[in-house]
Simulated scan of single mutants.
Amino acid sequence: MSGRNDEEREFDLKWADGAEHKEPSARARMLAARWKDNPPGPVPFRGEPEYRGPSGRSSWVSTAVVLGCVVAVIVLLGYADFRPY
């Protein structure tokens, strides 16, 4: 019985894929309705990011903090290795 359902399902998929007109998704219809009266402005392909993080620090400060932590861990591990038992 499942073989018959598989054949019917395959027929339905072929029939649906062969349709001349395909209905747009709900999101496409929503955006089309919204943009009909108020079209969006041009957007660059890779625009400058506006979000700079919770504190507004630049990326080099974050990089320095990470590298400082790595150096501190290396120093602590080196100190633990040279400490007499």
Score class of each variant (00 low, 15 high):
50 E>K: 10
24 P>L: 09
64 A>T: 03
14 K>M: 08
80 A>T: 09
67 L>Y: 05
45 F>Y: 14
27 R>Y: 08
31 L>P: 01
53 G>E: 07
53 G>I: 01
40 P>W: 09
51 Y>F: 10
20 E>D: 14
72 A>V: 07
31 L>S: 01
24 P>F: 08
32 A>V: 06
80 A>N: 04
76 L>E: 09
55 S>C: 07
3 G>Y: 11
71 V>M: 12
84 P>L: 06
12 D>H: 07
77 L>Y: 03
55 S>P: 00
32 A>Q: 14
30 M>V: 08
75 V>W: 13
61 V>K: 05
20 E>L: 13
80 A>V: 11
47 G>Y: 08
52 R>Q: 06
5 N>R: 15
2 S>C: 12
11 F>K: 15
24 P>H: 11
61 V>N: 01
27 R>N: 05
34 R>N: 03
57 R>Y: 00
13 L>S: 09
55 S>W: 01
41 G>C: 08
67 L>A: 10
79 Y>N: 03
10 E>K: 12
80 A>S: 10
71 V>H: 04
81 D>G: 05
49 P>C: 10
78 G>W: 14
9 R>I: 10
68 G>C: 04
12 D>W: 02
15 W>G: 01
82 F>K: 14
43 V>L: 12
10 E>C: 06
34 R>M: 15
63 T>E: 07
67 L>R: 02
11 F>T: 12
26 A>M: 08
78 G>R: 10
37 D>R: 09
60 W>S: 11
36 K>G: 05
65 V>K: 01
52 R>N: 04
11 F>S: 11
64 A>V: 06
28 A>R: 12
10 E>A: 15
22 K>Y: 02
46 R>T: 03
34 R>T: 07
14 K>G: 11
5 N>Q: 15
15 W>P: 00
79 Y>E: 12
63 T>P: 00
20 E>W: 11
42 P>M: 13
55 S>I: 01
17 D>L: 08
77 L>F: 07
43 V>C: 03
82 F>I: 15
22 K>Q: 09
56 G>L: 05
17 D>E: 11
53 G>T: 04
2 S>W: 06
49 P>H: 04
81 D>R: 15
66 V>K: 03
67 L>K: 03
12 D>L: 14
65 V>T: 08
80 A>Q: 11
30 M>W: 15
12 D>T: 03
46 R>K: 13
33 A>V: 06
34 R>W: 08
21 H>E: 13
40 P>V: 06
1 M>S: 13
4 R>S: 15
5 N>Y: 09
53 G>W: 00
72 A>P: 01
84 P>D: 13
35 W>N: 14
30 M>H: 07
73 V>S: 07
24 P>K: 09
11 F>M: 10
44 P>Y: 12
69 C>Q: 07
67 L>G: 03
